[in-house]
Amino acid sequence: MITTAVLLAAGEGSRLRAAAASKPLCPVGGKPLIEHAITGFAAAGLARVVVVLGYEAEKIEAHLASRSWPIAVETVRTPDYKQPNGVSVLAAEATLAGGEAVLAMCDHLVDPALYARVAQAGAGDGARLAIDRNIESDLVDLDDVTAVRTQGDAIVGIGKHLPDYDCFDTGVFAIGPGLFAALNGLASPSLTEGMRVLAAAGTALTIDCSDLAWIDVDDPAALGKAEDWLRAA
């Protein structure tokens, strides 16, 4: 089982600026998004998280240092938070020393059981993406979600506004050396492009997590849905 997580928390989060100056510190259900993620990793049985920071890094580092956490928390900084998110993933590569990790997004609220399922599945020869086949879900923003097309457990298409898809990208991956190699080979690396490289090689795999809840808290409308979801839980 994978025991380390990588949490991407580097972006500006401009669409949530009205709720919080820093998206990772945006409160949802009385607790900042970054705390939901870290405590979720701990509940899933992970022992360590590497948080990748960029925008408002000092403020987030201070917040992390002020808390006592149930797992080991480390931080690294992306060289340029305005670059595609693959650059932020690569910032954590050295900390993994060739090992695997559960990769997640700080602005996603996720049932810890989803993290645990991905940690158990592992990355295989490339990477494995947790998918949601509930394509009619009212928790998903169709204008923003990354759509996925599969054949069996293999990814054959991935991207925003994909015309033909059968599931959604939940933002949680099992990653390892295969994905880092793909990202290092791209001039402007994004996670989606890295997964397309692996898909072409047949090593971009999926794990079905349609039975587990998640929501991308990317704008005020999604924040309101997330608050309602937590109250109903």
Rank of each mutant, 00 (worst) to 15 (best):
P112Q: 12
T146H: 12
W69L: 12
I34R: 04
R117D: 05
A204N: 10
L109T: 02
D169G: 01
L183A: 09
R149P: 03
V6E: 12
K59N: 07
E93F: 07
G30N: 11
L53F: 13
L46V: 09
W69K: 09
A201N: 05
C106T: 04
L46D: 08
F180P: 00
P27C: 01
L230A: 04
T95P: 03
G86M: 11
A19V: 04
T95K: 14
G86S: 09
G126M: 03
L90Y: 06
A119I: 02
D143C: 00
R17P: 02
L191K: 08
G224S: 11
P24L: 06
R133L: 01
L109W: 07
A101V: 03
K59E: 14
K31N: 01
V6M: 13
V217H: 00
I38G: 02
V140C: 02
D218I: 05
A233I: 06
G98C: 11
D208F: 10
A213V: 14
I158F: 05
P24G: 04
D211H: 15
A187T: 14
A43I: 04
W229Y: 09
A10F: 11
G202P: 08
T95C: 08
E35S: 11
I71L: 15
A42T: 02
L16E: 01
R196Y: 04
R48L: 11
S66D: 15
A94H: 14
A204P: 01
E61L: 12
G122D: 11
L142R: 15
K59V: 09
A43C: 08
V148I: 12
A20E: 14
D169N: 15
I131E: 00
L46K: 11
R133N: 08
K82Q: 13
P189S: 14
A92L: 09
T78S: 13
I71D: 13
P79V: 13
S68I: 09
Y115A: 06
M195H: 10
L198S: 01
C26T: 10
E227T: 10
P189M: 12
G86V: 11
T146R: 00
A123Q: 10
V52Q: 00
A9G: 09
A104G: 10
K225T: 03
N184K: 15
F180I: 12
L7R: 00
V217Q: 00
G157W: 05
V76C: 07
G152T: 10
V50A: 04
A154R: 15
A204S: 11
V118Y: 13
